[in-house]
């Protein structure tokens, strides 16, 4: 094995993107720096390559893990809307229960916890404590699941009837986990989250894309109940569970896919329109010259 091959082997510690950009060039530099007749890479050169290679790998991994700011802000806004939706539903149910006069005791305890958790999540997003918001949202998913489980003994259809709550909380938690790295750590992000104007370019379109599955979930619930005939079904069968998963996963995914396609189509449209606009002044200029 010659020196060049040995150096190429060492360069394998670099991430693929870095290798394809620089490997040939780096080998040239390393060979230029080699003594005549040198057969083994020098220890210091090898150590430096390994160190820098692993550093580049760690950097690449970090870059993959942290989405770009526009996507993060869009996820934060979509997550906020999801949390508000979940809080609103729970608060409304709490209000109805209290106005009907049986607010005390167990029947509404789960609703109260849900209302509290999602309200706090929304507030945390608003004040920019994104990490805490993400953590609490994940806890919120567990609370929603628990709120279903505690009713299971008295209501076998509870998981089916409450599928939307679980789906909505999962989506919200997922958005907030994506958004967990705050652009500004504290109160400063309130205007950024509220005022879409100040969000980074491209966030607005992305919010629309993320909202599509979010608003589809409440629509999917009655669809599901119609499909399985929930009012006449005697018991929860495997078929019903399958239909539940298919509808609650399928419809939001479909909505997401359509929204992504619509956004792409609109971006193409904008591109052609600016293309036309770019040509227009020149043609106008020519037109006026002709008229003279």
């Amino acid at each position: 094995m010659n020196l060049e091959t040995r150096y190429r082997r060492l360069l394998a510690v670099y991430p693929a993107r870095h290798r394809s950009a620089y490997a040939d060039e780096m080998v040239a530099v390393l060979m230029d720096g080699a003594r005549p007749g040198q057969r083994l890479p020098s220890l210091r050169e090898a150590a430096d390559l390994l160190w820098c290679g692993f550093a580049a790998r760690a950097r690449a991994r970090r870059a993959v893990r942290s989405p770009d700011p526009a996507r993060r802000e869009a996820a934060a806004i979509a997550g906020l809307i999801g949390a508000v939706m979940l809080a609103a539903v729970a608060v409304r149910r709490l209000y109805l229960a209290s106005s009907m006069g049986f607010a005390e005791g167990a029947p509404v305890r789960d609703v109260a916890v849900r209302a509290l958790v999602w309200t706090v999540v929304a507030v945390l997003v608003l004040v920019g404590l994104r990490r805490s918001a993400a953590a609490l949202a994940v806890l919120g998913v567990l609370v929603e699941a628990a709120a279903i489980v505690v009713w299971l003994p008295v209501e076998a259809f509870r998981p089916i009837r409450m599928s939307w709550a679980l789906a909505l909380s999962l989506l919200t938690a997922a958005f907030l986990v994506v958004a967990r790295r705050a652009r500004r750590p504290v109160l400063g992000s309130v205007p950024a989250t509220l005022g879409l104007r100040r969000a980074p370019a491209g966030a607005r379109g992305r919010v629309a894309v993320l909202l599509a599955p979010l608003v589809t979930v409440p629509v999917a619930q009655p669809v599901l109940e119609t499909v399985i005939g929930i009012h006449t079904a005697p018991a929860v069968t495997a078929g019903i569970v399958l239909a539940d998963v298919a509808v609650m996963v399928g419809l939001p995914l479909l909505a997401l896919g359509l929204a992504v396609a619509a956004r792409r189509a609109m971006a193409d449209l904008r591109l052609t329109r600016t293309g036309v606009a770019g040509h227009a002044p020149a043609e106008q200029g020519r037109g006026s010259q002709h008229s003279r």
Binding site: H18, Y22, E25, M26, V29, L30, G33, R44, E45, D48, L49, L50, W51, C52, G53, A55, A56
Partner: peptide, 9 residues
């Protein structure tokens, strides 16, 4: 060293 140089570049 080559690694340092290309990290900077």
């Amino acid at each position: 060293r080559a690694g340092t140089l290309y990290a900077a570049l």
